[in-house]
Amino acid sequence: MSSLQLLDLQGFDLDLSYKSSVFAKSSTPPIYTINAYNAPQHLGSGVLFEFQNQIFFITAGHIFEDRKIDDMLIPTSMRFEEILGEVYITAPSLPSLKYENEILVDSLDLAIIRLEKKVADALKIDYSFLGISNVELGHQQKYFGQEENKISDYYFVFGFPATKIKSKNQHWIAEPLFFFAFNTINHFKNKRLHVDRFHYHLFVNYTKKMTNQVTKAKQKLPALEGMSGGGLWDFVGYDINKNEPVLKLVGIMIEYRRDFIISTKIDYAIALIREKFNLPKLPIPRIPISFS
Rank of each mutant, 00 (worst) to 15 (best):
Y143Q: 14
N205A: 10
S27N: 08
T28A: 11
D239K: 00
F80E: 09
E255I: 00
K276L: 11
E275F: 00
A60N: 11
F160P: 01
R114K: 15
T215I: 05
L6T: 06
D66A: 03
I112S: 01
I287N: 02
A24K: 00
I31H: 03
V135D: 00
G61N: 06
K124N: 13
I89W: 04
T90A: 03
Y206D: 01
H199L: 12
N212T: 01
F291E: 08
Q140H: 14
A120L: 14
L247K: 09
Y127W: 06
L97M: 14
R79E: 13
E225I: 01
G251M: 03
F57S: 00
P95C: 05
F80Q: 04
R79A: 08
L97P: 00
F64Q: 04
Y18T: 13
L4C: 09
Y154E: 07
P92D: 13
D121N: 14
N169I: 11
Q213E: 10
I125H: 12
V22N: 08
G229F: 00
S45R: 06
D267C: 11
M210P: 01
T215Y: 03
I185C: 06
D66P: 09
D121Y: 07
E275G: 02
I34P: 00
S263A: 15
S292E: 15
F158C: 05
K142F: 05
F158I: 06
F156Q: 02
